[in-house]
Structures are given as structure tokens and as C-alpha cells.
Amino acid sequence: MQKIATTLGTTVDYLISGGNEEQITDKELLQQFKEVQLLDKEDKHLVKTFIDAFLTKRKVQKLAQ
């Protein structure tokens, strides 16, 4: 099942549930997230903190417009 999902560029969950989960369509971003999953706990936390900071900055910028 995993080989089929990989070949189709999706997940086993997606194949089973029929699309009840959100999918990341940006292949480069998906690969980056896969690599982040391999990091240790502290590095993962750091990446999440950077993402949160960036998203918060964007939200604040939109509010300021």
C-alpha cells in the first residue's frame, strides 16, 4: 500500500480515507517537511518556531495594511 501511495505522490491515509485530510501539493515544501521529520526534537522545535514567527509576521503585516 505504501509503494502505491508513494508512486501516486500521496499517503496511505489519503488512499484509505478518500481525501479527508489536507494534502501538501508543493513538492519542494513536502520534501523539506520530510527532512525536518528526521531532525532531533530540539531542531524540530527550532524549525517550528521559525515558521510560527514568519506566519505571525505576515498576519501582522496584513493587519497593518
Rank of each mutant, 00 (worst) to 15 (best):
I16R: 07
L30F: 11
E35R: 14
T10V: 12
A5G: 04
I16T: 05
T56C: 06
K57E: 09
Q23F: 04
V47H: 01
F33A: 10
L38C: 10
Q37Y: 08
M1G: 13
D52S: 08
E21I: 09
N20G: 13
L38F: 11
L63R: 06
T56E: 11
D52Y: 04
A5L: 04
L38V: 05
V36G: 00
Q61H: 11
L39D: 00
L63Q: 08
I24Q: 05
I24K: 04
A53C: 03
Q65I: 10
I4L: 14
L29S: 02
T49E: 02
Y14K: 10
L55F: 07
I51D: 04
H45Y: 08
V47K: 00
E42G: 08
K57T: 07
T10K: 09
I24T: 06
L39H: 02
A64T: 04
E21R: 12
E42K: 15
E22A: 11
F50G: 00
L29P: 01
Q2K: 10
L30Q: 15
R58W: 07
D40L: 00
H45I: 05
L55S: 04
Q31K: 12
K34T: 08
R58H: 06
K59H: 12
L29A: 07
G18Y: 01
Y14N: 15
D43Y: 01
F54S: 12
G18H: 03
V12G: 02
K3T: 13
G18E: 00
L15E: 14
K34R: 13
H45D: 14
L55H: 02
I16Q: 05
K3Q: 15
I24E: 10
H45L: 12
L38G: 13
T6L: 13
V47T: 00
H45S: 14
V60L: 15
E35L: 13
D13I: 07
R58L: 15
D52C: 03
G19F: 10
V36A: 00
S17Y: 06
F33V: 06
D13C: 08
Q2A: 09
S17P: 02
Q31M: 06
Q23L: 13
L46W: 02
Q23V: 07
D52G: 01
Q23Y: 01
V47A: 03
V12P: 03
T49M: 02
Q31N: 07
